[in-house]
């Protein structure tokens, strides 16, 4: 069904969805088509959170989201996180707390945390924040430093 499409606004820039098949996942459009490979491909089944991006500011699994389904939306990936005020705070917290090792889960964690802090605000209980990060798997850190980073970001914004 040929039709005009509204495209996506990715990290503040308009991107056309022309030529994107209807069944293409946002993950593949970002990585394969636009070479925004900072969004990571992990399990592709909603089990690891590595592909988390923000759609309209909210954490979303790009592996289980059709690009066509979110047309017209604003998408934020790790490449665009520096132009977001909360994003800068979270990135600094990850850096200072050493909350990464191999780095593969890191973009997903950063986006998830940015989204949660936006959704719930800095007054969110640490317990809630930690619980809501449980969809993002990290195999390297044991999450200790990630907890510290989440806490530091929360306090910096509070």
């Amino acid at each position: 069904m040929a039709r005009a499409r509204r495209g996506l606004e990715v990290n503040g820039h308009r991107r056309s969805l022309d030529g994107v098949p209807d069944d293409e996942r946002l993950l593949d459009t970002l990585r394969g088509r636009w070479r925004l490979t900072g969004t990571k491909e992990g399990c592709r089944s909603g089990g690891c959170g590595a592909c988390t991006v923000l759609v309209e500011g909210r954490p979303t699994l790009s592996c289980l989201t059709l690009s066509s389904e979110v047309e017209g939306s604003a998408v934020t990936t790790i490449e665009g996180i520096a132009s977001d005020a909360v994003g800068r705070v979270v990135r600094t917290a990850f850096e200072r707390e050493g909350a990464l090792q191999c780095g593969y889960c890191t973009p997903g964690f950063v986006l998830a945390l940015v989204g949660l802090l936006k959704e719930r605000g800095a007054r969110v209980a640490s317990e809630t924040l930690v619980e809501e990060l449980s969809g993002n798997l990290c195999r390297c850190t044991g999450y200790v430093s990630i907890r510290r980073a989440a806490e530091a970001a929360r306090e910096a914004l509070g």
Partner: peptide
């Protein structure tokens, strides 16, 4: 001390095996 690889990994610039394309 900040890990030397932190900035590259936190900006999405770090290229992993899955990111390769030629």
């Amino acid at each position: 001390m900040i890990r030397p690889d932190a900035r590259e990994k936190l900006s999405g610039e770090a290229v992993y095996g899955t990111d390769l394309a030629v």
